[in-house]
Computed example of a mutant assay.
Amino acid sequence: MKKLCDAVDRFCLKHPRFGIPNLMRFVVFITAAVFLLDSFSGGAASYMLNFDWALILRGELWRLVTWLFIPEYDRVIWMVVGMFFYYFIGSSIESAWGTAKFTLFYLTGAVLTVLFGCLAGLWTGYPLVTNIYLNNVLFLAFATLYPDALIRVYFVLPVKAKWLALFYVFLTFYDLIRMNTAAAMIMLPMTLPLLAAVWLAYAVFFWDRIRDILADIGFLTRHQRSPRTIQFKEAAKKQAEKARRQGYRHKCEVCGRTDADHPELSFRYCSRCAGYHCFCEDHIFNHEHFTS
């Protein structure tokens, strides 16, 4: 999983122009347009755009994409609130990650949803693809990046995003566990693959955060006590003290550029090198690893 996470970062660094700027603006506007058309057509617009495997096989290939714009709500007030909320969290994630990584995250979740939904259709008899779980994982991503952001529930009660995210995860598992046997046999084969799809996308893009959380609660104590980790932390302290004396925080081991001289550059530390070695965005994936 770590290699996939590193591959994502490598791709985004090498292709900064990849993606659609302000992606959530387009998603929200198109979804709002579909909602308005549904209001005047009795749901005909959503019927023409939803994921229907039989119609896709007949040539209606646009349904492979347009299911992303099916409105999640049927009341105007909740539709407006939902669209503003998704635009807010989507633009916040894009601001933190950049256009390339956010677009890749959204695209990965959408593609995996289609693939897992179609695979589930092999034993359910009919593929089910919906954007509900993809929208939910957007909030999970937002809460991971901005855990202390305040969300006003019903416009009144301020709650930190991290607690709402934990509550969402709890409710998801609770809804699955409390199903009776008959309902579970029908619903689980359809819902579990879709959940697995978006949570797999989340795990790939947030693997570093997940490892930190596991370490904090004691699941990675063995790793934290390893000689290499201890050496890395000691070297990090020495580097921080040296940086304070020299007037910069990061310096590339290859080209010698610093964050003080080039504030526009991104600097990262290589976990495969022995010790604590910093590299700029041009050399983080293009350098010989230190072995001692």
Rank of each mutant, 00 (worst) to 15 (best):
residue 1 M to N: 04
residue 2 K to V: 09
residue 6 D to L: 14
residue 14 K to A: 06
residue 21 P to T: 03
residue 28 V to H: 06
residue 28 V to W: 15
residue 30 I to Y: 03
residue 39 S to I: 02
residue 41 S to F: 04
residue 42 G to T: 06
residue 43 G to S: 03
residue 44 A to I: 08
residue 45 A to F: 11
residue 45 A to C: 11
residue 47 Y to G: 14
residue 49 L to W: 15
residue 54 A to K: 04
residue 55 L to I: 14
residue 61 L to R: 10
residue 65 V to D: 01
residue 68 L to H: 14
residue 76 V to K: 09
residue 79 M to C: 10
residue 82 G to K: 01
residue 82 G to M: 01
residue 82 G to Q: 00
residue 87 Y to T: 04
residue 88 F to I: 04
residue 92 S to A: 08
residue 94 E to F: 06
residue 97 W to P: 09
residue 98 G to W: 13
residue 98 G to Q: 12
residue 101 K to I: 10
residue 104 L to V: 08
residue 109 G to V: 10
residue 109 G to E: 10
residue 110 A to F: 05
residue 113 T to N: 05
residue 117 G to R: 12
residue 117 G to Q: 05
residue 119 L to S: 11
residue 120 A to K: 06
residue 123 W to K: 13
residue 124 T to G: 07
residue 125 G to H: 11
residue 126 Y to Q: 04
residue 128 L to F: 07
residue 129 V to E: 03
residue 131 N to G: 00
residue 132 I to P: 00
residue 139 F to E: 00
residue 139 F to G: 00
residue 143 A to F: 11
residue 144 T to I: 06
residue 144 T to N: 07
residue 144 T to A: 15
residue 147 P to V: 09
residue 151 I to N: 03
residue 153 V to M: 02
residue 168 Y to T: 04
residue 174 Y to H: 05
residue 177 I to H: 13
residue 190 M to V: 03
residue 192 L to A: 04
residue 192 L to Y: 06
residue 194 L to Y: 01
residue 196 A to H: 15
residue 197 A to S: 04
residue 203 A to K: 05
residue 207 W to H: 11
residue 212 D to Y: 01
residue 217 I to D: 01
residue 221 T to V: 07
residue 221 T to S: 06
residue 221 T to W: 00
residue 222 R to D: 00
residue 227 P to L: 07
residue 229 T to Y: 11
residue 237 K to S: 03
residue 237 K to D: 02
residue 241 E to M: 06
residue 244 R to S: 15
residue 252 C to I: 12
residue 252 C to E: 14
residue 257 R to N: 04
residue 257 R to M: 13
residue 263 P to Y: 12
residue 264 E to A: 08
residue 266 S to N: 10
residue 272 R to S: 12
residue 274 A to K: 12
residue 278 C to P: 15
residue 283 H to S: 09
residue 285 F to S: 07
residue 289 H to Y: 11
residue 289 H to Q: 06
residue 291 T to K: 05
